[in-house]
Amino acid sequence: MEERIIIAGFGGQGVMAMGQLLTYAGMIEGKHVSWLPSYGPEMRGGTANCSVIVSSEPVGSPVVVNSTTAIVMNKPSLDKFEPSVNKGGRLFINSSLIEQKSKRDDIEVYYISANEIADELGNMRVANMVMLGAYLEATKTVDVESVLEGFTKVFGENRAHLIPINKEALERGAQAVREQMKANV
């Protein structure tokens, strides 16, 4: 098993944290993991992305060029990373901010209205967790429990009170995927 994931969006959408949570969860489950961010001026308000690898084997190159999954939170990220997804891979599109549909017909595509769902939950900042929940539901790369276990490691103990709403966000993302799968059947 090797998941090679690209997570991309605007700086501030929580794409780095999403990647770190996934990496932490993988580590907790004893898998081989790496997390590599894009860095530099492009981070300042522009697009940010990170490469995450969760694997049963030691991680070779930490750079994800061809991905098994891409999670895109905004339009520029879709344009940049849609072609990177391997045939048979998965693409998660934040349909709240991206109206466009995927041009690919050789991959699984999920449209998640992450911002609307987060808004319904009363905290726009959990949109990334909605996307992560969707990803976990579709791929089962790691358990949701492991992600929640890693939560305070990434955000600090003083954010522990936010675990319930984040848990809910993960669940709503998963639900969105289940509904979409049902609709596709």
Partner: peptide, 10 residues
């Protein structure tokens, strides 16, 4: 290099 400095691993 910048990669090993920036990346996270266990």
């Amino acid at each position: 290099d910048g990669m090993i400095g920036q990346m996270m691993e266990p």
